[in-house]
Amino acid sequence: MKIAISLLLTLAAALPLLAENTPAELRQTSKAVLGTIPDKMPGSESDTPDMVELGRTLFFDVRLSANNTQSCNSCHAIDQQRGGADTAPTSLGDAGKHGGRNAPTVLNAGFHVAQFWDGRAADLAAQTKGPILNPVEMGMHGETAVLEKLNAVPGYGEAFAKAFPKDAKPLTYDNLARAIAAFEHTLITHDRFDDFLKGEDGALNDRERKGLQTFVSVGCVGCHNGPLFGGNSFQKLGAVNAYKTDDQGRFAVTKDEADKFKFKVPSLRNIEITAPYFHDGSQTTLDGTVREMAWLQLGRKLTDQEVDDIVTFLHTLTDKSRTPTHTTSR
Rank of each mutant, 00 (worst) to 15 (best):
residue 32 A to W: 01
residue 273 I to Y: 09
residue 183 F to G: 04
residue 43 G to D: 00
residue 264 K to H: 02
residue 249 G to R: 06
residue 247 D to Y: 11
residue 15 L to N: 12
residue 314 L to Q: 14
residue 74 S to M: 00
residue 192 R to H: 11
residue 221 V to Q: 03
residue 215 F to D: 11
residue 288 G to T: 08
residue 185 H to K: 06
residue 207 R to I: 00
residue 238 G to C: 06
residue 255 K to E: 04
residue 208 E to D: 03
residue 266 P to Y: 05
residue 229 F to E: 04
residue 283 Q to I: 09
residue 194 D to M: 12
residue 234 F to Q: 00
residue 311 V to K: 07
residue 69 T to L: 04
residue 219 G to C: 08
residue 107 L to S: 09
residue 155 G to E: 04
residue 95 A to R: 13
residue 290 V to C: 06
residue 133 L to G: 11
residue 247 D to Q: 14
residue 21 N to K: 13
residue 254 T to W: 05
residue 291 R to Y: 02
residue 7 L to H: 13
residue 170 P to M: 01
residue 22 T to R: 12
residue 310 I to V: 15
residue 168 A to S: 14
residue 64 L to N: 14
residue 70 Q to G: 00
residue 210 K to Y: 05
residue 116 F to S: 08
residue 52 V to Q: 09
residue 163 A to K: 06
residue 252 A to D: 13
residue 296 L to R: 14
residue 156 Y to E: 02
residue 137 E to T: 11
residue 117 W to P: 08
residue 200 E to R: 14
residue 147 L to N: 11
residue 157 G to P: 03
residue 211 G to I: 05
residue 163 A to G: 08
residue 27 R to A: 14
residue 139 G to M: 05
residue 61 D to H: 08
residue 186 T to E: 06
residue 322 R to M: 03
residue 168 A to V: 04
residue 111 F to V: 07
residue 157 G to Q: 15
residue 237 L to S: 12
residue 263 F to L: 06
residue 122 A to F: 09
residue 152 A to W: 01
residue 6 S to Q: 14
residue 121 A to K: 10
residue 221 V to Y: 07
residue 228 L to S: 13
residue 162 K to W: 00
residue 276 P to D: 01
residue 281 G to P: 04
residue 32 A to V: 07
residue 253 V to C: 01
residue 88 A to H: 14
residue 314 L to A: 11
residue 262 K to P: 03
residue 174 D to I: 02
residue 121 A to Q: 12
residue 105 T to I: 04
residue 160 F to N: 07
residue 83 G to H: 08
residue 189 T to G: 12
residue 197 L to H: 05
residue 112 H to Y: 11
residue 236 K to G: 01
residue 216 V to L: 15
residue 10 T to K: 13
residue 120 R to V: 01
residue 243 Y to R: 14
residue 320 K to C: 01
residue 237 L to P: 04
residue 132 I to R: 07
residue 12 A to E: 15
residue 42 P to R: 09
residue 152 A to N: 10
residue 241 N to D: 06
residue 65 S to T: 09
residue 18 L to R: 11
residue 118 D to G: 02
residue 304 D to K: 14
residue 36 T to C: 10
residue 141 H to K: 15
residue 36 T to H: 02
residue 24 A to T: 15
residue 227 P to H: 05
residue 135 P to Q: 02
residue 14 A to F: 07
residue 233 S to G: 04
residue 77 A to V: 05
residue 249 G to Y: 02
residue 77 A to W: 09
residue 61 D to Q: 07
residue 237 L to E: 08
residue 214 T to Q: 13
residue 114 A to T: 10
residue 181 A to Y: 02
residue 319 D to P: 12
residue 64 L to I: 15
residue 72 C to Q: 07
residue 244 K to C: 01
residue 281 G to I: 05
residue 149 K to E: 09
residue 261 F to E: 05
residue 96 G to W: 02
residue 68 N to S: 14
residue 320 K to Q: 10
residue 298 L to F: 08
residue 250 R to D: 03
residue 182 A to T: 09
residue 236 K to Q: 13
residue 184 E to C: 09
residue 110 G to C: 03
residue 54 L to K: 13
residue 167 D to N: 12
residue 251 F to T: 06
residue 89 P to K: 13
residue 248 Q to H: 12
residue 272 E to N: 14
residue 133 L to T: 13
residue 202 G to W: 02
residue 255 K to T: 12
residue 92 L to C: 07
